[in-house]
Computed example of a mutant assay.
Amino acid sequence: MQETLATLDTPAAIVSLRRMQHNIARMQARADALGVRFRPHVKTTKCADVVAAQCAAGATGITVSTLKEAEQFFAQGITDILYAVGMAPHRLGHALDLCRRGCALQILTDSVEGAQAIVDFGREHGHAFDVLIEIDTDGHRSGIRPDDDSLLAVGRALHAGGMRLAGVLTHAGSSYELDTPQALAKLAEQERSGCVRAAERLRDAGLPCAILSVGSTPTALETTSLEGVTELRAGVYVFFDLVMRNVGVCSEEDIALSVLTTVIGHQADKGWAIVDAGWMAMSRDRGTARQRRDYGYGQVCTVEGTPIRGYLLSAANQEHGIVSCEGAADADIVARFPMGTRLRILPNHACATGAQFPEYHALAEDGTLQTWGRFHGW
């Protein structure tokens, strides 16, 4: 029997096909207009069906955060893969195996020590890895500052050691902390110019630097120029979430991922409806708590996906969620959300919420559902 939103067991991860396809088309059009190739980050979905839609729209290659993702998507026929996490020496054997099976895998480092480990392993096994150097353009996480002396030391270690110095990569992760177009555009230019500066220094030192890779969802959508850049990366845009809504790059109506849940009880005197989606379904991510608009554990919507203004998943235990009205307690909560009512909850962080589920249920406009597998782990 064909499952519907009325019969599907809950909690369940629902993907709106219409919204997802709109988001994919929007980002691909952005990359095309900026004149760069687009390499989506697939860590958000870890789903072959979603990635197939991104590639069909024009994406060239993918970005992964784990070698398990690389394995899974290589098995699906994708060969152009960037592993955008600093390469730990113990993973080099796995990376080598992928390369020898035909995967055009690019790896990443941001230190002389990391570069030397790649060189030593590559020489020992007779393989020249394609390596990008991670650049820190906003102080958010890892990478080498564009003007740091260690940039050239890393480049020289890789090049002299027989590895292929493929280029530079940066990620303006601090964009998640901003919430105006002006601030995002300024950071996007900082991201671009810092990456270009690093590439220029490498080239001036006689080192190759063909790839200049930048990106975060907010900066990708607000940048006005990617002059000098060769590729753009973004990930969460495919689903969006409430953090991105607060950043200002999407609306609630763009969010393609939601969690289907059922009302299982009430605490009428407190104005609570209890649902079967707790933090094991939504994740513990409370990213909006640090933003101007706090959505608790998620925005409550009708089963059709329309936000119910004023009602949030305000608290969560492992398997229980509390739906309540912002401000005063709702004295009519039992009548408003009777036992068995089905609701959908928009998440704070799509990557974290998606990771709670082994599969997605892709919802078409006619109400039919397809089941899409999702994988976990490292």
Rank of each mutant, 00 (worst) to 15 (best):
V131L: 02
F38C: 09
E326Y: 07
N246S: 06
V154Q: 05
Y297F: 15
T302D: 08
L242E: 10
L98P: 02
N348T: 05
L257Q: 07
I107Y: 01
P338M: 12
L82P: 08
L96C: 04
D179C: 14
L343M: 00
M20S: 06
R123C: 11
I308V: 15
V229E: 02
D80F: 00
G248D: 09
A210T: 11
D332W: 01
G206M: 04
E326F: 01
Q54S: 07
G287Q: 11
R164Y: 06
R197Y: 05
G126W: 06
D130G: 12
A364K: 14
G102W: 00
R293D: 14
R39F: 12
D241R: 01
E222R: 14
L158G: 10
V154H: 07
I135K: 05
D285Y: 07
D285F: 04
Q28H: 15
L346Y: 04
A84I: 01
V275G: 05
E222C: 14
I118R: 02
T7N: 13
A352N: 11
I78K: 06
L105Q: 04
V229L: 11
R39K: 14
I133A: 12
L260D: 02
E365Q: 13
L132I: 03
A12R: 03
G162T: 14
P89E: 09
N348C: 09
R100C: 05
R18P: 00
V243G: 02
D97H: 13
Q299P: 11
G58H: 04
T170E: 13
P358R: 00
D330E: 13
T10Q: 09
E319C: 10
E319I: 13
D285K: 05
H361A: 04
M280R: 14
N348H: 06
V50T: 08
V112R: 12
I264T: 15
Q318C: 11
C47N: 14
A234T: 06
A362Q: 04
G235I: 03
G155D: 06
T219A: 08
H159W: 08
W378D: 15
T230V: 00
H171D: 12
G194A: 00
A31Q: 11
Q370R: 14
A84L: 05
L257A: 12
M244N: 06
C55P: 00
A52N: 13
D204T: 09
T261G: 00
M280L: 13
T262L: 05
R309F: 05
S324F: 02
D332Y: 03
